[in-house]
Computed example of a mutant assay.
Amino acid sequence: MPITVDSRFPDATTTGRLRTEHGETWYRVTGELTPGEGPAPLVVLHGGPGAAHNYTLMMANLSADGRAVVHYDQLGCGESTHRPDAPADFWTVELFVAELRALVEHLGIGDRFHLLGQSWGGMLAPEVVLADERGVLSLTICDSPASMALWLSAANALREELPADVQQTLLRHEEAGTTDSPEYLEAMQVFYDRHVCRVVPNPPEVTDSFAQIEEEPTVYHTMNGPSEFHVVGTLKEWSVAERVGGIRVPTLVVAGAHDEARPEVWAPFVDGIPGAVSHVFPESSHMPHVEEPEAFQQVVGDFLRAHDGGAR
């Protein structure tokens, strides 16, 4: 079923806020939520942690076949409640798993929905399924590692391919603790242009997410660190690799050929999840939904349509 993708993405049909004990979670729905009828809604988990939903907005085009697409900002970023004074141990995987489950129940789709996670979102999505697979028709993991140890190993290998002066600049500032230096940020951009988003200059929705991390870095710095390849935060020891065999929902794993998420970082998903399938986008890095939007729409859209059956 070929689908034509607009050069941008559709406007939100509705927006709203879910209030919980931890604050407010802002959400955006493209299309009409009709629980139990038609194509099942897709819920998108953004990356970061703390990157906000903006850079994933091209995925709203997956509503073209009549399914609703739900974006939201996880707690601590974007339009949701910011908690800059929260202690490091507030920001846990369990917090974000509970937030997702509360949101789908609030929207009335908790018994039938597809789940897609990009980058950190693709680390979170398997945790959601392992904690409670109720209502999850399928799982799509985009550009994500099964463990931070694998991610760091891949990042170090890619760093070694950077120009020598760029490597030296990165290392010098990391050792000095001056990763907020403009020189470090300039060197970091060399890596990002190769392995994060190869559409340069980046589209506005992508720069919006980067800008929001710069403005409110609490979650990203606490859980990850100062950059994609210098992970010193609370997720440094995270792994789901040894647990993915417990995932029983249909699973698609996608990545870009130039992705910072190299094949070895997502191989445990494909090897360990029963029946999992994968696809690599040849012209993309970490954001195939931005870099090859038509192909992304087709691959992911076909997968979702194939698993639009009843609730689990």
Score class of each variant (00 low, 15 high):
145 P>W: 03
119 S>P: 00
27 Y>W: 15
1 M>F: 13
269 F>L: 09
180 D>G: 15
31 G>S: 07
37 E>K: 14
303 F>V: 09
87 P>F: 04
299 V>N: 04
310 G>T: 10
16 G>T: 11
78 G>A: 13
26 W>C: 07
75 L>Y: 13
73 D>H: 12
68 A>I: 06
240 V>Q: 08
45 L>H: 06
194 R>G: 00
43 V>M: 04
123 M>H: 02
191 F>N: 08
205 E>F: 13
211 A>D: 09
206 V>H: 04
301 G>M: 07
209 S>Q: 05
192 Y>N: 06
285 S>I: 00
286 H>F: 05
118 Q>V: 13
218 T>E: 08
245 G>S: 10
47 G>A: 14
137 L>T: 11
303 F>L: 11
270 V>N: 04
152 L>M: 15
272 G>D: 07
205 E>H: 14
33 L>K: 00
16 G>C: 14
91 W>N: 09
86 A>K: 12
91 W>S: 09
142 C>E: 09
160 E>C: 15
251 T>L: 08
71 H>L: 07
250 P>A: 11
47 G>K: 00
200 V>D: 09
104 V>S: 02
280 V>N: 06
207 T>Y: 00
105 E>T: 14
290 V>Y: 06
228 E>G: 12
202 N>E: 13
304 L>C: 06
39 P>N: 01
191 F>I: 08
61 N>L: 04
176 A>Q: 15
152 L>W: 02
42 L>K: 08
193 D>I: 00
73 D>Q: 15
54 N>W: 10
300 V>F: 02
305 R>P: 06
77 C>P: 01
70 V>K: 09
235 L>N: 12
162 L>M: 14
229 F>A: 07
243 R>F: 11
143 D>Y: 03
192 Y>W: 12
31 G>L: 02
78 G>D: 13
297 Q>P: 01
210 F>C: 06
189 Q>D: 13
277 V>L: 04
185 L>I: 14
199 V>G: 05
72 Y>N: 11
22 H>I: 02
204 P>I: 15
192 Y>F: 12
290 V>F: 07
158 L>I: 10
288 P>K: 13
266 W>S: 06
305 R>Q: 09
49 P>W: 12
54 N>F: 10
85 D>C: 10
159 R>D: 05
300 V>T: 11
93 V>P: 02
142 C>G: 04
180 D>H: 14
230 H>N: 15
195 H>I: 03
141 I>W: 01
275 G>R: 08
248 R>S: 14
241 A>K: 04
165 D>S: 14
